[in-house]
């Protein structure tokens, strides 16, 4: 029985020698992949978020609160959603108005806009941001647990690995806007 052991080791060694480099290459590939995948996933998520933001415009009534000929979407805090929204702005319009995407760096910068997207990466407090939102006509959209309760009109959340959104009817009406029942029935209502 003992007699056979060296042979086995030998065989193992020879297999290892033969496949060592391809295996190492494969492992490296997976490793690289595992590093590069999260941004891809992010991309997909923000792609949907951008689409949702655009589609919200179909279910929110700004009434006559849109001055000028442009529909402005502001973003505070850096977010991958910007590039996605830029893509949408190239081809689509909202209520026959051109879509403009504006990046705000701090609450003081926030100017008039119809939608304000509050990135989860922003370091500013929600309260500070909301305080700077000018008067009426701005739909605030956030993406952080509990923000709807804290005053954001719509807040993206994840439920069972699916993108859902909360709606705060008080916040919506406080902004002088009306949300369609078709939208509210899909939203998780937060008081």
């Amino acid at each position: 029985m003992i007699k056979y052991i060296p042979n086995k080791n030998y065989l193992l060694d020879s297999w290892q020698i033969k496949w060592k480099i391809p295996l190492q290459l494969l492992m490296m590939f997976f490793l690289i992949c595992s590093f590069t995948l999260p941004p891809d996933e992010d991309n997909e998520e923000y792609n949907i978020k951008a689409a949702f933001i655009y589609r919200f415009t179909n279910y929110i009534d700004w009434d006559s609160l849109i001055p000028g000929k442009e529909f402005t979407i502001g973003i505070i805090g850096s977010s991958p959603v910007k590039s996605q929204l830029d893509e949408i702005a190239k081809t689509k319009t909202v209520k026959d108005k051109k879509i403009i995407i504006v990046q705000f760096n701090k609450p003081e910068d926030i100017g008039p806009c119809q939608i304000l997207f509050i990135s989860q990466k922003t370091s500013f407090h929600l309260g500070d941001i909301l305080a700077k939102v000018p008067g009426k006509g701005t739909l605030t959209i956030s993406e952080k647990e509990g923000y709807a309760k804290k005053g954001a009109a719509i807040n993206f959340i994840e439920v069972d690995n699916k993108l859902k959104f909360e709606a705060n009817p008080k916040g919506i009406s406080a902004a002088g806007l009306k949300a369609s029942s078709q939208l509210l029935k899909l939203a998780i209502i937060v008081e």
Partner: peptide
């Protein structure tokens, strides 16, 4: 008409 928003926001459950 009622399914439009569900489709737009990909809410199969609704």
């Amino acid at each position: 008409i009622n399914a439009a928003s569900s489709l737009e926001f990909e809410d199969r459950d609704a």
